[in-house]
Design a protein around this nucleic acid. Structure first.
Lengths: 219, 219
DNA sequence: TCAAAAGTGTTAATAGTACACCCATGA
DNA sequence: TCATGGGTGTACTATTAACACTTTTGA
């Protein structure tokens, strides 16, 4: 397309729904910003796209900045355009979701960026359209996790099948039968047992790990 | 997000993968533009987003311009950014797909816009990333058509079950058993028989139509 | 009369769901 | 000793896939 006449240009931001799994619940990393009124508001982490980066690399940069992690698993979700409440400006928001192991989250980042992990079922009103994006992202992860081993990005390297089941249940917002779940996940061939045991329960449970390495494509 | 420092702005275009069904094949409406070299190149239909329209309404405007149809069925697919070959400028492309009945296509538009319907399995090299977008759009339609009556947007009002089956087969790039297909589609309750007959075959076939009106949401 | 597409049911295989008891251990 | 979570198998149901012959009629 040649630009033969004046066309408008837009600010473009990347916003990220960062999911983590802690305290047996699915969480989203949200950013708290203080408004002039003194009230504070939460929103997705995000930033403007710069000239010297692609949209994908912008997302990676933002994720690195807020999570400390390189090469985090992420997927583009949707694009939205809204007029911000406190502005006449027009923004195009490209929304990604990302998955990470909260054990890899350095809590000092929370102070630096005023971020917190919020239970996905308990998210307050975010900026325009963002609550819908969180739900959409959760659905996308839910569809994905049934057929792909993306749980590996949310769990630590070693985990029990109960932990894994709880992860599935919290993403899909459902309960599952223990025996059916174990058969399902073992037939998928995502995970393998190790000879290690978890001793946080009385009896102890076998620790499993994902077979594939955590170095899958992040795009 | 407040704009407290200078952030870059980008040209934003909407590009559309317009699907139609003709000659028992899935087709895409492509736009032919002549380059300075004299060669011609095909690309998705598209245009820049204007200041006075949302991205969705921009897509509707473009679709109206190229197909003549108001309120065409469309879905946002993905966003891509590429540096165009013949330009230093940077563009953000928001890609939609749309479905239409080619019988509603006014052939004079083809001359006006230099567009043509190209078999989805025979698409030449388009501009950067667009071939991938066509495939992605086809997959999205394929997933959708299994559970939703979106075939109604691609077929004329009355059609035979064979035509409908061929539509499914060409979208999903597969073959299906006739009896299984008929059972599947009738159980879905998408279509109903009429008392009209199609006589293009020797024996003749019952004409069906979609039960729901073609006025579903287009966003 | 025959070629071409329309129409029509049953069976087998697979996937998914429901369900209950014993085990090992730390407190 | 007992409360807690770990671990295990089978039967039923629903969904999906495989498969072949008869009918109609225009050329």
């Amino acid at each position: 397309m040649k630009v033969t006449q004046a066309f408008p240009k837009f600010y473009v931001s990347v916003d990220c729904v960062v999911f983590g799994f802690a305290e047996r619940r699915l969480k989203v990393l949200l950013f708290e910003h203080h408004q002039e009124s003194g009230k504070s508001e939460l929103s997705l982490i995000g930033d403007f796209v710069q000239n010297d980066e692609s949209v994908d690399s912008s997302a990676q940069r933002i994720l690195k900045e807020f999570t400390g992690l390189d090469n985090i698993y992420m997927q583009q979700l949707a694009t939205d355009d809204v007029v911000e409440r406190d502005s006449d400006e027009r923004f195009i928001h490209i929304v990604y979701y990302a998955l990470m192991d909260v054990e890899n989250y350095n809590p000092t980042l929370s102070d630096i960026h005023h971020t917190q992990w919020i239970d996905v079922d308990n998210i307050p009103n975010l900026r325009a359209g963002q609550n819908e994006m969180v739900q959409k992202a959760r659905c996308a992860v839910g569809k994905n996790i049934k057929n792909e081993p993306v749980g590996s990005y949310l769990l630590p390297q070693y985990f029990t099948l109960s932990m894994l089941q709880t992860l599935y249940e919290s993403i899909l917002d459902t309960t599952m039968d223990k025996r059916n779940f174990r058969r399902f996940i073992l037939e998928k061939d995502f995970v393998q047992a190790t000879d290690m045991m978890d001793h946080s329960s009385r009896r102890g449970a076998s620790l499993y790990r994902f077979k594939i390495l955590n170095s899958l494509s992040h795009t």
